[in-house]
């Protein structure tokens, strides 16, 4: 059976929209990416180890080398999801639907890590695990809630096409809303907090700290891409496995699987993967 052409603008882009092509490319990309991120992480951890302690915060400042990359990735991941959402709504790109679905738990994990490390860092430097007055912590927490909402929504539907569209709309609205939330939390913060103890942004970043930080951020970003590619491959394999199971069942007992309502969703529209 011939496949109808997806509604995509360019031919290489269209070629990439085929899951098999994606599987081939990602299989080639993964080993070097994995090595780079492993080496980067090792180097970053060593540099962080070797970095001088802060004259005020002492050794605790080293949490920053984990905390900042996690916070950065929590935002990068959401931005990537917003791009995927646009890909779903504008081009019905099949990989975008998979990418959005698989990126949400990864983003949630990085956000949770950023929150946890931020809290651990806050204990020695601010004297408290959680500070309502800090808009960054609070915004991060709301981002986590948004991630969880997207995860819940994209798994609530039987039909994966519906789920992809619903998650895409929610992701985009969240993307528009996040700056507003951030602004309002900061504004609220200025009302309720004597903003004196919480100026951690005031640390002057010396090159001795900046370089390990950048290495760690780059290594974490690579790690994110590795995880995301693996998750996407996993999702494609899951759908393929389901189709194989259905084919086997159909061949063994054609009459029994006639009712579409009794058939579990194997995930994809033929054309778009949505």
């Amino acid at each position: 059976m011939s496949l109808p052409a997806p509604s995509l603008p360019q031919s290489w882009w269209r070629g990439l929209s085929r899951p098999q092509r994606f599987m081939q490319i990602s299989a080639r990309l993964l080993p070097p990416l994995g090595i780079i991120s492993a080496v980067g992480l090792a180097a970053g951890l060593y540099l962080a180890w070797a970095a001088p302690p802060d004259y005020q915060q002492g050794l605790t400042v080293k949490i920053m080398f984990i905390h900042v990359p996690c916070a950065w990735l929590s935002m990068l991941c959401y931005t990537m999801m917003a791009c995927s959402a646009a890909g779903i709504l504008l081009w019905k790109h099949p990989l975008a639907a998979i990418a959005l679905k698989t990126a949400a738990p990864i983003g949630a994990a990085f956000t949770l890590l950023a929150l946890a490390t931020g809290s651990i860092w806050g204990r020695p430097s601010w004297g408290t695990w959680w500070e309502w007055g800090d808009s960054r912590l609070f915004s991060m927490f709301i981002l986590l809630l948004l991630y969880c909402g997207i995860i819940a929504l994209s798994r609530a539907f039987d039909n994966s096409r519906t789920a992809a569209y619903a998650a895409a709309v929610l992701t985009l609205i969240g993307f528009i809303d996040i700056p507003i939330i951030k602004f309002s939390v900061e504004w609220w913060n200025s009302l309720h907090q004597p903003a004196s103890i919480l100026r951690k942004g005031g640390i002057a970043i010396a090159p001795a700290i900046l370089i390990p930080l950048l290495v760690m951020a780059a290594a974490f970003t690579m790690l994110f891409f590795v995880l995301q590619l693996l998750a996407m491959r996993n999702e494609i394999l899951r759908v393929s496995l389901r189709a194989l199971q259905q084919k086997l069942a159909w061949e063994a007992e054609p009459a029994a699987v006639d009712e579409p309502d009794t058939i579990a969703d194997n995930g994809q529209d033929r054309e778009t993967g949505l």
Binding site: L146, A152, I180, I181, F183, S184, V185, W188
Partner: peptide, 17 residues
């Protein structure tokens, strides 16, 4: 319940202001 979970983070600015 899902509706409330999805919407609550989005309307934080409304509660604040």
């Amino acid at each position: 319940v899902l509706l409330a979970v999805l919407v609550l983070p989005l309307i934080i600015p409304v509660i604040i202001f």
